[in-house]
Design a protein around this nucleic acid. Sequence first.
DNA 1: ATAAAATGCTACCAGTTTGTAGTATTTAGC
DNA 2: GCTAAATACTACAAACTGGTAGCATTTTAT
Lengths: 132, 132
Amino acid sequence: MKFSKTTEYSLRILSHMSLNENELHSAEGLYEHLKIPKKYLQRILTDLARSGFIQSIRGRNGGFSFARSIDKIYLSEIINATEGFDWTPKCMFGFGECALDSPCKMHDLWVDANQSMLTMLSSTTLADLKSK
Amino acid sequence: MKFSKTTEYSLRILSHMSLNENELHSAEGLYEHLKIPKKYLQRILTDLARSGFIQSIRGRNGGFSFARSIDKIYLSEIINATEGFDWTPKCMFGFGECALDSPCKMHDLWVDANQSMLTMLSSTTLADLKSK
DNA sequence: ATAAAATGCTACCAGTTTGTAGTATTTAGC
DNA sequence: GCTAAATACTACAAACTGGTAGCATTTTAT
Ligand code: SF4
Ligand code: SF4
């Protein structure tokens, strides 16, 4: 019901970067604004680069900028990249395949509730976040 | 978006026990059915007893039975006991207080989605699970 | 060339969760 | 009383997440 710190941080970073979509953002600058532990933030940034959301420019005056247009980066993609792809909820009891003789009453309710959240996340882009 | 293993195990244990609400269930017997690591299951059982969902009877022919009627045990209570219930949804970016200048577009959607899941869990009892 | 400013990489540390092992304690049945 | 069958307790191991530290590498400015 809660995202991992890494996911939260990633969302914060990318949403903050999207406020100045076309600028180059340095880790130091992001740290000033977001106060995410500096070294950890660095690692997350390189991970996000490896995942293809942003691209890194090394050397002096380097930094990070978006590798794709922010209206094509869906929140679900980010979460996929940080939490792994198996975070999509199947069974609230943790069964891979249902182990009960007959499906329990929760199944549909659970799937529905999660599905609606999933739909929300996979239809919202970073660009959408800005356009309140 | 996913419960801890401990929570999943607890839900499995209690829902399975509720199929024979009034019987005495031994750890060994539950292990046979649920295949949860035996010693870990033992510990969860004593935790569930300490939490007041079940009561334990020690000694030969001992075991576990419900301490309360299963139509008064809500799923949210179980989750509360196993992972703490501070998962009341605030911000999907992990801000305690909103750190943005203006609330982002996700806020209402996020709160609503979480609220509906919360309502679902706190209105369903173990007894409800059976009555499919 | 050299120094400075930036990212990349590797290794380690701490806390939490999950799982294992062994022993102690309680109780029923004989 | 003694033994067997059950739960209770304690300590430890393994894996994961979050966080820290230090050095390597790349590039620009001078
Ligand atoms: S029916 Fe119930 S136990 Fe089976 S997969 Fe669905 S939620 Fe899980
Ligand atoms: S407005 Fe957005 S950033 Fe602020 S608390 Fe709500 S979800 Fe979080």
